[in-house]
């Protein structure tokens, strides 16, 4: 049984797929991440992450229609599932809870 915890890149991909809503597939996710965060992720990493997320039940996928840009090849579209959405919410709340407990002077100690 796969764990329900997700990593940083997984969270990012999950978020982006949520943002893209209908038109999420490998290349669009890659481009969106680059635009929004400036990070260049390899397509193979994206495929791997999306497969993993699908296995965990956070994503659902189906083959879409063909288009000219890909030499007539169909793409696989990904959608956020409700458990995926719930995971994102949970991650956010955990993060916010922790963030709020952060002492304002915490960063000064580091520079000593």
């Amino acid at each position: 049984m796969k764990g329900t915890n997700i990593g940083e890149l997984e969270e990012l991909v999950l978020l982006v797929i949520g943002v893209l809503y209908e038109g999420a597939y490998g290349v669009s996710v890659l481009k969106e991440i680059k635009e929004q965060t400036g990070r260049e992720v390899n397509i193979s990493a994206i495929h791997a992450v999306m497969n993993r997320l699908e296995d965990k039940g956070f994503l659902r996928s189906e083959m879409g229609g063909s288009s000219n840009t890909r030499g007539g090849r169909r793409k696989r579209n990904y959608y956020l599932t409700s458990s995926g959405r719930a995971t994102l919410d949970q991650v956010r709340s955990v993060r916010e809870k922790l963030y709020n407990q952060l002492s304002p002077s915490a960063s000064y100690n580091l520079s000593v």
């Binding site: 481009k31 397509i43 090849r73």
Partner: peptide, 13 residues
């Protein structure tokens, strides 16, 4: 099909 489609699309982009 999906992988090849992705890499081709990326190539033209």
């Amino acid at each position: 099909e999906q992988i090849q489609g992705d890499v081709h699309e990326l190539f033209y982009w």
